[in-house]
Nucleic acid binder design. Sequence first.
DNA 1: CGATACTACTTGTCTATACAAGTATAGATA
DNA 2: TATCTATACTTGTATAGACAAGTAGTATCG
Lengths: 239, 239
Amino acid sequence: MVGSEQVFALYEKIKKSVVKDIDSGKLKPDDKVPSETQLAKLFNASRMTANRALKELTEESRIVRIQGVGSFVARPKPDAALLEIKSIAKEIADWGGVHSSQILILKEEKVTEQIAQKMNLNIEDTIFHSIIVHKDRGICVQYSERFINPKVAPDYLSQNFKKITPSDYLLGVAPIQAAEHIIEAVNCNKEIQKYLKIQPDEPCLSLKRRTWSFDRVATYSIIISPGSRYKLKGKFIRG
Amino acid sequence: MVGSEQVFALYEKIKKSVVKDIDSGKLKPDDKVPSETQLAKLFNASRMTANRALKELTEESRIVRIQGVGSFVARPKPDAALLEIKSIAKEIADWGGVHSSQILILKEEKVTEQIAQKMNLNIEDTIFHSIIVHKDRGICVQYSERFINPKVAPDYLSQNFKKITPSDYLLGVAPIQAAEHIIEAVNCNKEIQKYLKIQPDEPCLSLKRRTWSFDRVATYSIIISPGSRYKLKGKFIRG
DNA sequence: CGATACTACTTGTCTATACAAGTATAGATA
DNA sequence: TATCTATACTTGTATAGACAAGTAGTATCG
């Protein structure tokens, strides 16, 4: 093994070359990546080898390929990890509870400066704003305040949410491509204490979440759950 | 589109066939999957097509392939989602803090019944047990109690952890394949209050984590952070 | 002017073949 | 017995060629 040089397969060399061009900025998001035929000629490879390189870059979300058109540099995503948290309704169902929810607020309103910044909106834009309290057999287990970008779910306000939960509706019209979470333990304010019917010193889990859909910030949510009544569960597998 | 039947590519048919055999129980974990040559003959396909099918099944973690030996049904993992949480040291560094840690306990001991159950160990087995307090500029931000399966990191106790953190050492010798998390908001007990130097009513984030490596439970950790001093951040992208 | 057909180019799938490289086993050899 | 060797089989990589299918633009026709 002394002095030996790592040998890379040809398709790996092609991949590295394209990745290098992307990372160096030579190829920018939405730029056209050389076609399979061009790459094959460039690297003295067969088209299949270039195909494999581009195919794997697709799987790694570095490029997007469109049949008949070409391959293009993918738009960067916030990060490349996955956090899966079950919907509250599903979680309650899974431990044998009975889920119900109460919509406290559901309206369109002007964005505040803070929300505009978090959701990449202009200050004159409006958003959909909802506050929902989730219960298990009548006991409040979660306060959920959500701001929804009207561009990704224009019909949100006209849903009646009898047959489908707001979360499931949103997942249908605006599938989550990416999300960012901040989890904290907090003592929540009096208003939320009232909604959740908890004592002032009861520690609560606060989950602030931004989701992206179609390369837009789709939702910004603040989710508060009393520690004594709710445990957040997550699972993961590294790729 | 009326009455049209979905046409599947040949490599997809091969994939589906193998997946069906796995899901139906006809092929069990560690069983040998037919070789590329056999599948090619079976489906009247070329070896390259069978190769593509098995290659994609590898990427989907349904099978494991060993060059020169064959393809085998993968052992099932806890779940198929990914939660990435930065190491505390990295997170502190990222917001410009200065990380230090203090090892309170680091020893081998007999497992308790509870830990044995959580880590799939026998009651006569021993484990490595560590308690570490992480600080930022001398202020405690995290209490971390960890139980390590000696089988995945037999040299853990003989490390001095001057140049490498325990987490990074573990990641090196026992890469995480999967993990399970339970996140709660809690009021922590007096002992931990003392370690973290916090008030009794200070809400804390509790993170209980099991990690798997090489198909074994590698670690079980209880991580406690005061809410006022620590925010857990997670990011995700759906595949 | 608008619809149609043609074309050049792209990615998607598939074949037949080849050689490299890793593993397991049976048999020959020391 | 222990070790080497030939072999059969496996997966990994790569080629050259083929046809299908989708897109965009150009030229042609009515």
